[in-house]
Structure formats: C-alpha cells, structure tokens
Design a protein around this nucleic acid. Sequence first.
DNA 1: GCACGCGATGCAATCGATTGCATTGCGGCC
DNA 2: GGCCGCAATGCAATCGATTGCATCGCGTGC
Lengths: 351, 351
Amino acid sequence: MSRRRTTLKDVAEEVGVHTSTVSRALNPETRHFIRPEVAERIQAASERLNYRPNAAAYSLRTNKTRIIGVVIPDIANPVFPPIIRGIEDVLSERGYLAILVNSEPNNARHGAVLDALQSRGVDGLIMASLELGDSIIRGMIEDGLPAVTVNRRAEDADVPSVTNDEDQGIRLILEHLKGLGHSRVANVAGPQRISTGKARFEAFRRHARSMGFDTSEDLVVFAQSLNEAEGERCAAGLLDSLPRFTAIVASNDRLAVGAISLLRQRGIACPAEMSVTGFNDMPMVDRFEPPLTTVRVQQYEVGRLAASMLMKRLEGGELEPAEKHIVMPVELVVRASTAKPAIERRVARGR
Amino acid sequence: MSRRRTTLKDVAEEVGVHTSTVSRALNPETRHFIRPEVAERIQAASERLNYRPNAAAYSLRTNKTRIIGVVIPDIANPVFPPIIRGIEDVLSERGYLAILVNSEPNNARHGAVLDALQSRGVDGLIMASLELGDSIIRGMIEDGLPAVTVNRRAEDADVPSVTNDEDQGIRLILEHLKGLGHSRVANVAGPQRISTGKARFEAFRRHARSMGFDTSEDLVVFAQSLNEAEGERCAAGLLDSLPRFTAIVASNDRLAVGAISLLRQRGIACPAEMSVTGFNDMPMVDRFEPPLTTVRVQQYEVGRLAASMLMKRLEGGELEPAEKHIVMPVELVVRASTAKPAIERRVARGR
DNA sequence: GCACGCGATGCAATCGATTGCATTGCGGCC
DNA sequence: GGCCGCAATGCAATCGATTGCATCGCGTGC
C-alpha cells in the first residue's frame, strides 16, 4: 500500500536509459527521436511499472496544467448542469480537467476563489458567474489568462462569449402572446447587472413597443435575483400595484415558476386567467403544472462551444472576430402556461 | 499584459532577504520563526507585488495538491447538483478545490478519467459513480488514495461512505401505502449493480413481506438505468404483464416520473387509479403534475458530510469505526401522487 | 582509411517552493 | 570579559519532468 509512485527515473533504470530518453519516448511529439525498438521497451516498462507522469512536475516545467477553471454562480440552479456537462465532455476529450467553483460575483468569497484558481495556474477560465463591471475578472484577463464567458457576456468585447439569442427569444414570446390576443403584458425582468437580464429586458421593451403592446412602466418589475422566491415576490408586486394585464413574461424559468406559485396562492388560474412564460427551458419544466411555455436554449451545446473556443485559443489559434461572440439560436416551446386572455376578468379585481 | 508571475524570489529581492525567509514569513505555521518586523515587511511586499504561490512547485515539493477529485455519473441528473454544492462549500472553506468529472463506471472513459485524476495527484476522491465490484476504484484505494463514497457504498467496508437510510425510506413508503389501503404494490427496482438499487429492492421485499403485501415476483421489474425513459419502459412492462396492483413504488424519482408519464399515455389517472412513489425528493418534484410523494434525502448535507470526512482523513485523523459509515435519516414527503386505491378498477382492464 | 555528418542518446540546467541544517549575532550569566 | 545558547536567517538539496546542447558512434563518401 501507498508505496512511492513510479517516476521517470524508475522507468529509465528499468530499461537502462536516461530519463530524458524515457521522457521523449513517451511523448508522441518527440517519440521519433528515439529508435523504435528502444521506444517500445520503454513503453512496455512504463506500463509494467504503471507509470503515471507527475502533473506537478510537468506544470512546474511547462507552465501548463491542463486544468480549466469553471466558475458558475450555483450548480444547484438547474440551468447550469447541462452546460457544465457540455464543457466537461469537450475538456475530457482533449485531456483537460475542469475545476468547478460556485461563486456569486457579489459574494465575499468571489475574490478568494478566483485567487485560488489563479494560484493553481489554471490554463483558462470559463465563466458563467459574471456581472457587468466585475473588476476581478478584468484583472485576470488583463494578466493574460484566456477566458470565455458562457450565457452571459462581459462588457469588454475582448472576452469571447457564447450566449443565446435573447432578443429573438423575447420576440418569439411576445409574438406568441400577441397571437393569442394579449395586449397588456407584464414583465418580471432579471437583475440589470447581469447581461442576460439586461438583454431580455431591453428586448422586451423594444418589441413590446413595436408590436403595439401597452408599455406603461408599471408593467415592469425588476427581480433582485433569479429564483422562485423572487418570482413570487415580483408577481405579488405586479398584482398589488394593480395595472391590468393578462400575461407575465418572466426573465427566466425560475422566476416564471415562482410567479405561477403566487398565482395559485391567490387563486388566479394559470393559464385561464393569467398566462406566464419563462426562458431557458430548464430540464423538467415540461412536467410542471402547468407545463411551462418558454424559450428553449441549447444549454449543452452552449457548454460544448464555450469549451471548444477555449481549447482553440489554448492550442495556439487566435479566434477570428467572427467566432469571438457566438449567439446561439433559440426556439419557442409552447406548452400549457399560456392561453387566450380571459376577457377583462382581471379588471374586476379590487385591491 | 501577461508578464511573468511574481515568485518568492522576487519578493525576497524586494525585501532583501532570502527566499526561505519569505516562505516562512508567509506560512502561518512557520511565521513565528521570523522577526515580526521583517515578517510584516515581507507581507507588505508580497501584497504589493501581488504574489501568488505557484501551486505546481508547492505540490512537487510537498506532494499535496489541495485538490479533490469528485466523480459522479452525470451532473445533469438532478440528484447530484445539491451534493456537489455541499462538497464544494466544505472544500472551499478549507482551501481545497474540486475537480469534477462525469463518468459512468461501465463507460470506456472511466479508467482514463480516473488515471487523469491520479496523474494530477488529487489528494483524495469523492465518488458517487460507483458500482459494486468496480476494480478500478479498488486499485486506487489500495494505492493509498483517501476516498469517500457518497450516496452509494463500495463492497469494501474500508471505504468510508455517507448514504441514506434506504431501508427506512422504503418502509415509510410502504407504511404510507398500507395506511391508504393498498395491498398489491408493484416495485420498479433500480439496477442491482448499484448499492442503492440493491438496498431499496431488498428493503422493499423484506418490508412488503412483513407488512403482509402481496409479494408475487411478477410485481417487480428491474430498471437497467435510472432515468425517465427507463421508468416508462418498466411501468409498461408491469402493466402489460397484467398482475393487478394499485401502486408503484419506484426506486427513485426519475423512474417514478417516467412511470407517471406512461400512465398518462395509457389514460390511467394518477393517483386516482394508480399511486406512484419516488425516492430522493429531487428539486422541483413538488411542482410536478401530480406533485410527487417521495422520500426526502438530505442531499446537500450528504455532500457536506462526505467532504468533511475526507478533510478529516487528510488532516491526519483516522476515522473512528463509528463515523466511517454514516447513514443519514430520511423523511417521507406525502404529496399528491398517492391516494386511496380505486376499488378494483384495474381488475376490469383486459389485455 | 579518415573525416564528416547525422541519428540517437546522455547531460545538466531549470521551473518555484519547502525544509533540515549551518551560520550569524546578540544577550545573559558567572 | 568571555563563553554558551538561542533566536533569526541563510544555504542548498530536493521534488519530477522537460529540453537545449553536448557527445558518441556508426555509416558513408572520397
């Protein structure tokens, strides 16, 4: 048990050559320097002794770790697992490993966590946890650490990103609602410090106007965070402030789910009396009651792409401007949380 | 941009001392060797120069990485995120980082992935991905790598574990069904190569017998894997083989969700005509239609505990026998997927 | 038969931090 | 006032792999 790991030196002695020869024989890039017959003996010995290169020594010498830092706000948020899976699949195909950290940008731990990653010498960073104006990230990127953002964008256009077509998604939602006959639609917008929150809110405002929806300001509430409780709070706010409306467009599925909960608490039927839409098409929302009408984003693919872009950068290629910011197409998924508006039923409700 | 990182040597030159002095001054354990005044100057210089220790050099010298490998079958399975979060929270409190890999034990990549972790010199392993008789893991543990399993157990009792009280969970489910008046209950059991599948199946058999349920063998089907599609397939198998029964006890929530889907496809109302129960209480199952009656396990806490146990082992302490295998209490959560059995309604159905 | 060249391999420096041991300097004690 | 001892710091080896350069030996060409 626990005996010393075998090193290059052990293999070298076994075969009767120098460590440098072993090193070259085991590296596909340099193997051609070594006589095939010797290389094979080395290969055999290395397997016999169960040799595993020491990654620390390799990193120290080459300044590469083959480790990528993946920073997300919270893995327990169902949006992220498919993305992570996509990232990890690509990385492991290329012999890279992912260090996963949960960290919210405003959190005290955020800096420490990123320090730890930097100290570990990660070769690159994939960031889902990011707010507009995050200076810590800026610093790391200025230090030359390759990074890609996923889902969200940095202000700094130099940081490559993979995002979804938020504008198109919101447009599809609004068209769908309009087609059903809605004309007064409320918006539970996401936090404006997050790029998706901002993009979706702006898309809502623009498209609502151009499609002729009522655009009173009191039809919008801003969520402070992206979870169910906040969805409930925001929906309550809208109902209490009493503008009449027949549908709620939420900035993401979790807010939508929260809104639906609140409607139920208040005895308002969804979709009969109030339509609700989400964004993301999280796993399982098709099984909710009611099944959620939402915008499907390709979460797994987004993860894969982000990882691929980072790999490409690490393996030498600069990214061409055209591939620096990828916007993935989205798709409207109509389920049962939207329906024709009830004819002015909401008007009757008093405070 | 991208200029060389500052090293101990840089700090040493700045202050006019030797690198070893800097090293000692910066390490809380050895700081007392250094005159406070010097230590402070070193501290200041190190901050001024933004010094970050090189983890590769540290690892090479000390043979420690402060990295833990976390191996799970699939992060996209909703059971795992809370566990991962629990693990990561504990690790980051202690200055450790988690490398996350997705790997099914039967998969070709399994060995390669574990090799990669070993090569990276992880200090320990937390395994959720594990089948009874997995020889690769055995090998690593015999090599002296500290490991803890979560959710599942290894056959080898030497590997510490944190699991849930499967037996109790199944018992609570059966008592609940019995209380409702059911007497013929089918079981969609999990794969028997997985410890939870086995434990829950055995619990089902034992408690079903002792409570006086019908225990015909055709009331049991074994799932090959743990997902919704397999749940559908198994439920179909049960219905088609036509034993009469009024409830389905599934080995986990995903199988249960699949079973419910199938019932809906066949026009069988749940819970009116057929009760269904799950296990795990995954996030969001309370919002499903119907909200799922299931067994709540403390996923986040399970993750925290596993990480804590590993930390304890790494920081010297051997685990006492009593704390080597922790079994977490579970809790029955009754929702709307279970109800009193319909009086022999199923009898009428022909092939 | 000798020199040249090149293919194959060895040598040794290097990456950056840790740590056992050596050295220095100073205060206290008799 | 000299010596002992301890506190504070420096020295140098070390971890294991990579890699530029040196070296060796052999074949080839003349």
